[in-house]
Each structure stands twice: as C-alpha cells, then as structure tokens.
C-alpha cells in the first residue's frame, strides 16, 4: 500500500494527474483492506447485521436550508484514544472510576483488553441513529 501511495504522490508531483484525481485515488486506496497480516484480535468475525468491517464513524447533519455537516472519524482514532487513556495518572483514574461508578457505569479503561476493545468497535458497526426534525432537519450517525 505504501508503494501505491508513493506512486500517486509522484504522479501528482509530475503533473500527470490533477489534485482532485489524486484525492480520489488516495481515498480509494484508504478504503482497500490492508495487505499486511492482521493480529488475532482484529480477525473477529464481522457483525451479523452488516457483514462488513466498520472503518469510519459518520455523522451527517442536514439543516433546513442547504446546510450540511459531514464528519468522518476513523475507528482507528477511537482505538488510539482508548489507548491514550493509559496515560491518565493512577490517582486521577481512580477518581474517574469512582465518579463513573456513582453513575452506575462500571467501565475500567485501564483494564480494557485489546480483544474487548475490538469487540466494542465491531459492535459499533450495527450502530445507526436517524433523527428527523419537523422542519426537514436530519441527523444520521452510522458506521461505514
């Protein structure tokens, strides 16, 4: 995949393709499955509901008068964010766990194993939220 990306950038540099074409090619390349071997944790069967692996979390908001917001967040960023929680100092983590416990949430991010994290991300592939307002506003949250 690295060679393909380098080739596209080289073609862009040489002027053989336009900027928009390069963007489309890089986008298409980003949606291809990784060719390198994957860890056992990531070979969890895709959810039965969709039969595909969730790569991005999309949030689409359409307002009444041609106003749209489109946000695409890679699921890898979610994984990285959870791992970043390991940097929270133990005393602060204890307070966070306490506060969550008071709300009835027993989530210990420090002890979240890679398998559990992968299961959590995989289960999000079935996530789909559709909200429609009275004036034609829509909010959609889904995985793709």
């Amino acid at each position: 995949m690295g060679n393909d990306r380098a080739r596209i950038l080289e073609m862009l540099k040489q002027g053989k393709i336009t900027v928009d074409e390069a963007e489309q090619l890089l986008d298409a390349l980003g949606q291809q499955p990784a060719s390198e071997p994957v860890s056992a944790a990531s070979v969890v069967a895709p959810s039965a509901g969709t039969g595909r692996k969730c790569r991005f979390l999309r949030v689409l908001v359409k307002g009444g008068s041609n106003e749209t917001v489109d946000v695409r967040v890679p699921m890898q960023l979610l994984r990285a964010g959870v791992k970043l929680s390991a940097l929270i100092p133990p005393e602060a983590r204890g307070k966070v766990d306490c506060a969550l416990g008071e709300k009835g949430i027993n989530l210990d991010l420090a002890n979240l194993s890679p398998e559990m994290l992968e299961d959590l991300v995989e289960s999000m592939s079935e996530l789909s939220v559709n909200v429609q307002g009275d004036d034609g506003e829509t909010v959609r949250v889904f995985c793709e």
């Binding site: 980003g30 041609n66 106003e67 749209t68 917001v69 489109d70 946000v71 695409r72 967040v73 960023l77």
Partner: peptide, 11 residues
C-alpha cells in the same frame, strides 16, 4: 489514526 478523517461543512 487520523488518516481518513474529514470534516465538511456547507452552508
């Protein structure tokens, strides 16, 4: 992990 992230706003 930010590769592929995008935010687009049209009004």
């Amino acid at each position: 992990a930010t590769r592929g992230m995008r935010v687009e706003v049209r009004a």
